[in-house]
Amino acid sequence: MSRKKIDDGLERRILALLELKYSQPQIVKISKKRWNQFENIKFSRQRPVTTPSTVSKVIQAIDVNDPPTQRSIAKSCHASQSAILRIIKQANFTLRKKRKVHKLTSSNAEKHRRPPPRFYRQLANNRYNNFITTDESWFYLDGTEGKRKVCYIKKSDPDYDRMILEQDSSRPQGFMVWAGISSYGETSLRFVKPGVKINSDYYINNILKPFFITGRSSLVFQQKEKEKKSPSRQRS
């Protein structure tokens, strides 16, 4: 069956549009709008059919705590990434970002259970205005230890435990920052030099004394109990 030959003028226009880097759908759209050509031509792309084995393989890959990327799943299933995304949506899964939390050890849990009634009595009758509470914290560049920061959860039966990214006691390289807060406001941040051995002498001479010299000397210092600091040498 011979093809219908198009007009020479229309052919020249199409070639000119091709030289201008127009795509085939754009050329058809322009031809329909300006020259009333290609009225019966429609461009459509049929979606690839996903087999039950492919769907099962995708669900098994994402229904874990640390799922692989969609690109790697598509490569292993010999399918497109859009097909993998469509399977995930049809299976009623959604992508969520994990929340970083510190791993709670048994000693930390026991310490949080012990109530401090003596400290509460000291804060009564507006005496809290004379107290300053301080603490220090470590900041790290990365603590995921190779675990993925995202996970998939099912909308109908969500497993929220997957969204928690626990960090072990072993930490990557970081730095320590000290700060405090009282009824007068917050203190300035004090950074501990990297590699310094933090003991009671360093803490008192380089953190506490400079603060009380330049700050309010009438405040009562209160901090969580630390094993490396001598309570008898703390200012109270």
Results as ranks from 00 to 15, higher is better:
11 E>N: 09
68 P>G: 04
210 P>E: 10
186 E>R: 12
112 H>D: 15
106 S>W: 15
210 P>S: 08
224 K>T: 09
208 L>W: 10
19 E>L: 11
215 G>M: 03
226 K>W: 06
28 V>A: 02
99 R>W: 08
67 P>L: 01
146 G>M: 04
10 L>V: 10
26 Q>E: 15
23 S>F: 08
109 A>N: 13
3 R>S: 11
189 L>A: 08
84 I>H: 09
75 K>T: 12
125 N>V: 15
89 K>E: 11
2 S>W: 07
96 R>V: 08
71 R>S: 03
87 I>R: 03
218 S>Q: 08
192 V>W: 02
56 S>Q: 08
130 N>E: 15
6 I>W: 12
209 K>M: 13
132 I>S: 03
6 I>A: 08
2 S>T: 06
137 S>K: 12
3 R>I: 09
190 R>M: 08
111 K>E: 09
117 P>I: 15
6 I>Y: 07
218 S>W: 10
186 E>A: 11
166 E>S: 10
219 L>A: 05
92 N>W: 03
92 N>R: 12
146 G>K: 00
211 F>Q: 03
163 M>F: 04
61 A>W: 00
205 N>I: 07
149 K>M: 07
118 R>S: 10
113 R>Q: 15
47 R>H: 06
75 K>D: 10
174 G>E: 03
163 M>K: 07
150 V>H: 05
133 T>D: 04
91 A>M: 00
67 P>G: 03
34 R>E: 12
33 K>E: 14
133 T>R: 05
126 N>Q: 14
210 P>L: 04
16 A>D: 08
17 L>I: 01
192 V>S: 03
100 K>W: 11
125 N>H: 14
68 P>A: 02
88 I>R: 07
37 Q>D: 02
24 Q>W: 14
6 I>V: 10
227 E>A: 14
195 G>K: 07
174 G>C: 05
59 I>C: 02
225 E>I: 11
23 S>R: 09
236 S>D: 14
63 D>M: 00
201 D>H: 12
140 Y>W: 05
122 Q>G: 11
172 P>T: 05
198 I>T: 05
99 R>S: 10
81 Q>S: 06
